[in-house]
Design a protein around this nucleic acid. Structure first.
Length: 135
DNA sequence: GCCAACGTTGGC
DNA sequence: GCCAACGTTGGC
């Protein structure tokens, strides 16, 4: 079981939208590094759902329900998509500022490579963020 | 809106 | 294979 963080700009596809839809395919990744992480996702893996640009906060947790397959939105077999559904909402959103201010999280990819749209999260980091969201 | 960081493209 | 030019992302 692996933990991840996936980013979306709220105006493109917000967490609320995912909850409304029930599930979605996570497509449109056009970056090799991010793609490689997508390919490693397995059913049941949990993803922190992060709103970039607007919000700049973790707003929920999504669960992978189908591992990587050819991205249906492009005719180019280099790119893949996965299916995700909402796992649960956070009691309280955890902002980037807060993440940066938390020593246990300063190694997060989000902090050091903010442009990567799909990234791995260590179990400890996942726990810390969950804890933050409950305070 | 600006700009730094990063990725990609294409000429050589 | 190098690197300059360009485009995009995302924090501020």
């Amino acid at each position: 079981m692996q933990y991840w963080l996936i980013k979306s700009e709220p105006y493109k596809y917000a967490w609320e939208q995912l909850k409304k839809d029930g599930w979605t395919y996570w497509d449109g990744v056009r970056n090799y590094q991010a793609r490689n992480f997508l390919k490693q996702m397995l059913t049941g893996d949990l993803c922190l759902y992060y709103h970039s640009n607007e919000g700049k906060e973790v707003v929920g947790i999504a669960e992978v329900i189908k591992p990587a397959y050819q991205d249906p939105t492009i005719e180019d077999d280099r790119w893949v998509a996965v299916d995700v559904k909402p796992y649960k909402s956070l009691k309280r959103n955890v902002g980037l500022k807060e993440i940066k201010a938390t020593p246990e999280l300063e190694q997060m990819v989000l902090v050091n490579n903010s442009r990567l749209s799909v990234q791995p999260v260590k179990p400890q980091e996942f726990d810390v963020i969950l804890k933050l969201s409950e305070t």
